[in-house]
């Protein structure tokens, strides 16, 4: 049991590099690869937390996890329920089920909240903003400088009149390209699990760091869709609204990094760094996936036999 439990728990370890990963400058030059790594770390941690409980729960049934899992599934199928599990194992099983349900519930909730807010936002934009069909842009009559997109089906790119007045044509084009990249890439769906994670485990520093870092990476990925980075950098500086005086000034964490990377055009992505990062992502995921998949690959009887009916080799 111990090696199986360890390999499930090892899946939680990559979470500890979150703070360093969020600060690492190479992620600015490889935002897509870095995003994949964040996704792998989060998914691996979730799977690891769930699998560790399963491994501990079926431990008394067999020393080897896949065999124990088979016995457990067979018991459930034959109606013997949780026979042979002590209260400790029962707690471990409840932990696994709890984590799974908690995560799914928060993801569903985050999706519902986002959908409701977006529907409202679309209505407000339709009613209050002028639609410019030539650019497919909605313009809000306000002097404040603002640009955003309402993501999802029937998404809208929204600019304020103040933004249009203060930006040059090239800068406007760059802003529009950035917002359309968000909409077309469905970045809202990429961010959703991380929003849910941050809500589900608000006490976990990893969840907050990941949510923040992924949001910044998505901005950088959208920035890369603007053909010329310099007008985009100008637009960013022009549009970054200073926080109102007296406010807490929760700064947009990404804007400094975004401007700096747009200005430093010479330092482009390095192919082997991307390869290395994608490989690390795969490696991080492989552990918990292997433990989860093992019961369905390792048979404790002849492979042709039905999993539920074959008799376990007791004693081996």
């Amino acid at each position: 049991m111990t090696p199986w439990l360890l390999s499930a728990l090892v899946a939680l370890l990559p979470m500890s590099v979150a703070a360093r990963l969020a600060r690492a400058e190479w992620t600015w030059r490889h935002p897509k690869a870095a995003l994949a790594l964040w996704q792998a770390i989060a998914l691996s941690a979730g799977l690891g937390a769930i699998t560790a409980g399963l491994v501990a729960a079926v431990a008394p049934l067999d020393a080897v996890f896949p065999h124990g899992m088979h016995t457990f599934v067979r018991q459930l199928a034959w109606g013997h329920g949780l026979h042979g599990l002590g209260w400790l194992e029962f707690a471990a099983l409840a932990w696994s089920a709890g984590v799974l349900v908690w995560l799914v519930a928060h993801t569903v909730r985050a999706a519902v909240v986002a959908l409701t807010e977006r529907r409202r936002q679309r209505l407000l934009v339709d009613v209050a903003a002028e639609h410019l069909p030539d650019f497919d842009v909605y313009v809000l009559p306000s002097a404040r400088r603002l640009a955003y997109c309402v993501p999802g089906a029937g998404g809208r790119v929204v600019l304020s009149q103040g933004a249009i007045d203060s930006l040059s044509a090239a800068e406007l084009q760059a802003v529009l390209k950035h917002e359309r990249a968000h909409a077309r890439g469905r970045h809202d769906l990429v961010l959703l699990p991380f929003v849910a994670l941050a809500k589900a485990f608000a006490w976990l520093p990893f969840a907050r760091t990941a949510r923040q870092a992924v949001a910044v990476l998505l901005e950088m990925i959208a920035d890369d869709h603007a053909r010329d980075p310099i007008p985009l950098a100008h637009a960013l500086v022009a549009m970054a609204a200073p926080a109102p005086a007296g406010g807490l000034g929760v700064a947009d964490a990404g804007v400094v990094e975004r401007v700096r990377r747009l200005l430093a055009r010479g330092r482009q992505a390095v192919w082997w760094v991307s390869v290395l990062v994608y490989s690390s992502a795969l490696l991080v995921l492989s552990g918990p996936v292997a433990v989860l998949v093992a019961p369905w690959l390792v048979w404790d009887c002849h492979p042709s036999a039905d999993l539920l009916t074959c008799v376990p080799d007791s004693g081996t």
């Binding site: 807010e117 955003y148 309402v150 950035h178 909409a183 500086v237 200073p242 926080a243 700064a251 947009d252």
Partner: peptide, 22 residues
């Protein structure tokens, strides 16, 4: 979760630093 905005708010110091860099 409702919208994806182009850029958020920054402190006045950061805004000044960004302008200088540009």
């Amino acid at each position: 979760g409702a919208v994806q905005r182009f850029v958020g708010t920054v402190s006045p110091e950061v805004a000044a630093a960004l302008r200088e860099a540009l």
